[in-house]
């Protein structure tokens, strides 16, 4: 049985472990304890303080926190440590959580309520109103699409790409979290500043013939490059 945790930060990393699963039907069934006792007695070193998961697939009881506390105590008598539950119904899950037992998702696909395998990528942030001077919009972790002008003195920022379907007169900062493949697209480049992954150009440093027309901004060979129009770029993947 594999358990995975999604990595969210460098200190918090995913890991895969093998755990034993105890199938529970009736938590107070004496046969359950007797069978467990016999199995543990056969290889006591293997089972000593081993973490186990309670599988509630065949159980209709276990709906109170006290049921889980009883199960924990019973398993502790046989040197087993309960670390979580799987295949719990909503009611069972609430009781398990009250007894400090988290729900674990089975990786071998026999879960009662299958969870979608793929998480949809974050949707781009869509802005339909003009971005006025003095306003700042940040599309965290995603792309930004502006279907209106971005005024001088306004700032549009995205961790992904920035698309401006209108004149871009303010500042545009794409790949704000460091993504060097992020790009800026605009129907009319009049920007005060464009930046990708920390590299920037102020309007003074942009060739005048590239201004006032459709353009895209990309980081190519570590150089912030302005490409006229929508053409695919030299050196782009």
């Amino acid at each position: 049985m594999a358990v995975t945790a999604a990595a969210t930060a460098t200190r918090l990393q995913g890991g895969i472990f093998t755990l034993m699963v105890v199938k529970v039907a009736d938590p107070y069934d004496p046969i359950l304890e007797r069978e467990l006792g016999e199995q543990v007695a056969m290889s006591p070193t293997f089972f000593a303080q081993a973490p186990v998961v309670l599988d509630l697939k065949d159980s209709l009881s276990c709906t109170a926190a006290a049921d889980f506390t009883a199960l924990k105590e019973m398993l502790a008598r046989h040197q087993l440590v309960v670390v979580g539950v799987q295949n719990a119904s909503a009611l069972q899950l609430r009781a398990a959580q009250a007894a400090a037992l988290p729900a674990l998702k089975s990786a071998n696909g026999n879960a009662r309520r299958p969870t979608p395998e793929r998480v949809a990528p974050p949707r781009p942030r869509l802005v339909m109103q003009p971005v006025r001077s003095g306003t700042q919009i940040y599309a965290k972790g995603t792309d930004l699409i502006v279907v209106a002008p971005v005024s001088a003195g306004a700032e549009v920022i995205a961790d992904g790409h920035i698309h401006v379907y209108g004149p871009l007169r303010g500042r545009a900062i794409a790949g704000a979290a460091g993504d060097q493949s992020a790009r800026i697209f605009t129907q009319r480049l009049e920007a005060e500043l464009v930046s990708i992954a920390g590299r920037y150009l102020v309007s003074d440093a942009i060739a005048p013939e590239l201004m006032q027309q459709p353009a895209q901004v990309a980081l190519i060979d570590d150089h912030l490059t302005i490409l006229p129009g929508w053409s695919s770029s030299p050196g782009a993947s």
Binding site: R132, S133, T135, G153, A154
Partner: peptide
């Protein structure tokens, strides 16, 4: 014009 733009932003927020 730029100051007006700023104020229009304020009206909207």
């Amino acid at each position: 014009v730029r100051d007006s733009d700023r104020i229009i932003g304020m009206l909207a927020s």
